[in-house]
């Protein structure tokens, strides 16, 4: 999943550099934003240890 999100950002970077007026940039940006925050929240809820304070 992490690789997919970064690959999506790579696609967005290439599109921004080649065609900065392309409206698809908005979609890619929005999807990336949702995926990054969503993936973080997924870990917060479902990955044991991430939310724990270690002593």
């Amino acid at each position: 999943m992490d690789a997919i999100v970064i690959a999506l950002m790579a696609a967005m970077a290439v599109l921004i550099i080649r065609k900065p007026r392309d409206p698809h940039i908005w979609y890619l940006w929005g999807i990336s934003l949702v995926l990054v925050v969503g993936w973080w929240m997924f870990h917060e809820v479902f990955t044991p240890g991430v939310t724990e304070v270690t002593l």
Binding site: D2, I6, M9, A13, I17, R18, P20, L33, V36
Partner: peptide, 27 residues
Amino acid sequence: CVLCMLQRMAMIFTCMGPVYIISRTAH
């Protein structure tokens, strides 16, 4: 770790703005 990787993603995400500015100027 998980959070380290997420922070790397955020760094890449953060750079999109200046890349957009450079690209728009070049075009």
